[in-house]
């Protein structure tokens, strides 16, 4: 919503917005309570989410936390937590665009520099499964698209 308001503010300079241009605001009002609920739930279970994702990934592919002989689990946890917190705020604000602009696009280049795409691909795939098990369906439907966006942005080798 934030970036939509900003875009609207720019586009209606000197004129009024049409009803079509205002529908995003109505949609946001309708979804607000669910978003707050989801945001607070994510806050509550964030450690568990990261830990469960970690354990599942370890089971699926233990080599993913090994980077040329170094264990990068700690680094992975920090990076993953960062993305998850951005996902949470993006859920609350219904703002994937700001999430992309202020984190994902930059992070994509960093992950590419460190050849971490495979790890990211798995992380945000597995995390979607963990989310579906930990949140209600409506809540998960808010979160998973952003995790999928993360997976596609960070996990794909260009």
């Amino acid at each position: 919503m934030l970036s939509q308001i900003e875009r609207l503010s720019r586009e209606v300079d000197g004129r009024y917005a049409s009803d079509a241009e205002l529908t995003f605001a109505i949609d946001y009002v309708r979804s607000f309570n669910l978003r707050v609920q989801t945001y607070q739930k994510l806050q509550e279970i964030e450690s568990m989410l990261v830990q469960q994702t970690y354990s599942k990934m370890r089971t699926l592919d233990p080599t993913v936390f090994d980077s040329a002989g170094t264990d990068i689990s700690a680094k992975w946890k920090r990076d993953t937590l960062r993305v998850l917190r951005y996902v949470a705020i993006a859920v609350l604000m219904d703002d994937a665009d700001t999430f992309r602009e202020r984190l994902l696009l930059w992070f994509q280049t960093i992950m590419r520099a460190f050849s971490a795409q495979r790890s990211c691909n798995l992380t945000y795939q597995v995390m979607q499964d963990v989310i579906k098990q930990s949140l209600t369906a409506p809540q998960a439907n808010l979160v998973c698209p952003l995790l999928e966006l993360s997976r596609r942005t960070l996990g794909t080798i260009a």
Partner: peptide, 11 residues
């Protein structure tokens, strides 16, 4: 790390 350096330069 060279690639990281370069990405940071270009941003």
């Amino acid at each position: 790390n060279l690639l990281f350096l370069l990405e940071t330069w270009w941003w």
